[in-house]
């Protein structure tokens, strides 16, 4: 950006008000979310950078006095809504195959049958995991007198984050919905990422005699620093000490249902996987991935021992790697 005033179509004498107006005007015609033309996007970017520099009178005065220049004042590369909305997984997209008539099958083959995800898109291709909910949609009926009508409230959809352990073991989590409704949600054991939980009657208000709609919570299972999950199998990274790695022996291992004792083989290595049968989710397995951890300090005794040991027992774990 050479001249921020020029980017806004103004001169140095413009008032603060004119600067704001000029920026708004460009935003109106050239906003990348509304105008797909790359030239418009460039104009908007330049205007936004100019506006950021000039909107603060103090900063503008420093620029006018030559104390700061226009370079380096650009907004950090910002993603517009469009950048997200064009992706397949935009959570706000309500319908997709609707409107393709006879070709909706073709559409779904190509782009996948998407659930009617958006805030209020009842019925638009709800997925199977909603178990029969679809029949309930749009169950409105005209009341006898023809005055007003009763309609079931809208179904609403939320994203719910649950921590790793709650999802693995099952449990309850207390949440407040954006409409202020506070409630306890039961998370089933082994809940999977993307799974949907239906809360009957926790959706939008009904009209007339109509009942409330349902709320659907899409689960997002969080990561855990020590645990990983693959379906019903879980993997725990277990740190072991140098002497445990060399000598083997019994170690206590956390599982989803409390600690158990496990036999460590002699000469265990980082990355080695051991199995605890049936200790995963619902009869799945737990794997224990070992990680050898050095003592916090290598004392003189250990170093001396190693020196001596190396003299007669050196080995090359990188043998045959080439390079």
């Amino acid at each position: 950006m050479d001249d921020p005033y020029q980017a806004l179509g103004l001169t140095k004498s413009a008032s603060q008000d004119e600067i704001k107006k000029a920026y708004r005007k460009i935003a109106k015609t050239d906003h990348p979310d509304l105008n797909p033309d790359p030239a418009a996007s460039e104009r908007f970017k330049a205007a936004a950078a100019a506006y950021d520099l000039l909107k603060d009178p103090e900063q503008r005065a420093r620029f006018d006095a030559g104390e700061i220049d226009a370079q380096g004042q650009e907004r950090p590369q910002q993603q517009y809504y469009r950048d997200f909305a064009e992706r397949g997984e935009n959570p706000y997209r309500q319908y997709s195959s609707a409107g393709y008539g006879d070709f909706s099958d073709v559409f779904e083959d190509l782009f996948g049958a998407r659930a009617g995800r958006g805030g209020g898109g009842p019925g638009a291709g709800m997925g199977d995991d909603f178990g029969g909910g679809q029949q309930d949609f749009g169950g409105f009926r005209r009341s006898g007198g023809g005055q007003g009508f009763d309609m079931r409230g809208q179904d609403v959809r939320y994203d719910l984050e649950v921590d790793f352990m709650t999802a693995a073991k099952g449990g309850a989590t207390r949440i407040t919905l954006p409409d202020g409704n506070s409630l306890e949600v039961k998370i089933p054991e082994g809940a999977a990422d993307g799974q949907t939980i239906r809360l009957r009657g926790k959706g939008g208000e009904g009209y007339g005699q109509g009942g409330r709609g349902d709320a659907y919570l899409t689960l997002h299972v969080g990561d855990h620093p020590d645990w990983r999950r693959d379906g019903n199998d879980v993997t725990l990274t277990l740190p072991i000490s140098l002497d445990e790695a060399v000598l083997g022996g019994k170690v206590q291992v956390p599982t989803l249902s409390g600690a158990v004792s496990m036999n460590l083989p002699k000469g265990a290595s980082t990355g080695q996987r051991l199995r605890l049968k049936g200790k995963g989710i619902k009869g799945g397995n737990q794997y224990v991935e070992l990680k050898v951890v050095m003592p916090p300090q290598i004392d003189a005794e250990l170093a001396a021992f190693m020196e001596e040991w190396r003299a007669g027992h050196a080995y090359d774990p990188r043998k045959g790697m080439g390079g």
Binding site: D33, L34, N90, R93, Y95, S96, L110, G118
Partner: peptide, 10 residues
């Protein structure tokens, strides 16, 4: 806009 952006992506 959601529909339009989505369709453009597709």
């Amino acid at each position: 806009l959601d529909e339009m952006h989505g369709m453009r992506g597709e």
